[in-house]
Design a protein around this nucleic acid. Structure first.
Lengths: 201, 201
DNA sequence: TATAACACTGAACTTTTATTCAGTATTATA
DNA sequence: TATAATACTGAATAAAAGTTCAGTGTTATA
């Protein structure tokens, strides 16, 4: 391989890794370019050589995180036979992901920060739609399998995402087991809430 | 009344009103003291005469908002006979509150921003606990009335808050009716999820 | 080997913003 | 009326932080 491309790849990864750790630890706004300079040992100019700007760097990390999540989920998904199992599995997956990659806090800060360029706003909107689509498809499959019945799939997809979004915030103040239990309970309530008939797990 | 106290009260209100509107519109970080100076016509020094600092000003608005919420809720609560009705009422109340006072967005930003003084962090933690206690008490009353049964009241209080927290974020992209419908559906799912038996509304 | 493309430096620039404080005007107090 | 307390001004401070760019060394290309 080209030595230059190799170098670029390596540097880009070094910056991304350091930035990810810092954003997770300190938050988006509180992490300065200077912090990343210190952590990587490379210059400020170099960071701007590889990434458009701070927003671009963070967005890059988010996209990377999404594709990583999708990949690991695809591996796990096949292990769950029914949609109900899949939903419990997803809740657990989300809980653990949140515990292992606390980038979510910075992501929330970033999503809720109003000083964003229009194209970034657009990209975020697409991401949210992606999450909702994911939920919608999962629920639809459950309906097709007659695991539960509901007319308002879109509405429920939002409910489900809301639940995960809110839990995500609360779970930051929890221990591992406590968080997992909360996610499980949430899924109990949700599934029982949309169940065809009374169900005990 | 003392003319000085009257003056102080008036000025403090003027600043609070302007700040509330600006925070709601632009977000916490994006609203500068300079913005408030322009909006009120009084000097920067005057703002710092009446409030400890920017954090203190925002915290003041949050406290004011909470007490206001409690007050209007107490008025409404008596109208609902059962706990289930109360929960639907609360969901509606939250939906409308969110639509009328979009300070929630700035509040999220503030809550998720890591650059907070320790005492502010503490105060926020107390607020969150207050919300959870509120939910817990409401649910407990429902159990006492045999409207639903559950062992894990604390867990469900968190689930309920998570749901409202997440919906709050989603409802920002919704119209009034759409938001109300989403909150109602969420409560359907939640209540059905913790119901004693299968229920149709 | 000469030239171009690339990876990188790091200091300087620019802008923004929270906060302070010496001083002024107004009102209460004795 | 004299003094103290209070309400307020607004310019100065001070620090932070994102971004740029002229220039340097390194690698690819012809």
């Amino acid at each position: 391989m080209n030595k230059k491309k190799q170098q670029t790849e390596q540097t880009k990864k070094k910056i991304a890794d350091a930035a990810r750790a810092l954003f997770a630890q300190k938050g988006y706004k509180a992490t300065s370019i200077e912090d990343i300079v210190k952590a990587t040992g490379c210059s400020a100019g170099n960071i701007y050589y590889h990434f458009k700007n701070k927003e671009g760097l963070f967005l890059y990390l988010l996209e990377e995180w999404n594709t990583e999540w999708d990949k690991t989920w695809l591996d796990k998904e096949t292990l769950y036979p029914t949609t109900i199992d899949k939903l419990y599995g997803m809740a657990e997956h989300l809980a653990l992901d949140q515990l292992n990659h606390p980038l979510t806090k910075a992501a929330d800060e970033f999503f809720n920060n109003s000083e964003k360029a229009p194209d970034v706003e657009e990209r975020i909107h697409e991401m949210v739609q992606g999450y909702l689509d994911f939920n919608r498809q999962l629920l639809q499959r459950g309906i097709d399998n007659h695991e539960f019945e509901t007319t308002n799939v879109t509405g429920l997809a939002i409910i489900l995402d809301s639940l995960m979004l809110g839990l995500n915030q609360h779970s930051r103040r929890m221990e591992r087991e406590e968080a997992l239990e909360a996610y499980r309970l949430a899924m109990d309530v949700f599934l029982h809430g949309i169940a065809k008939s009374t169900r005990t797990r």
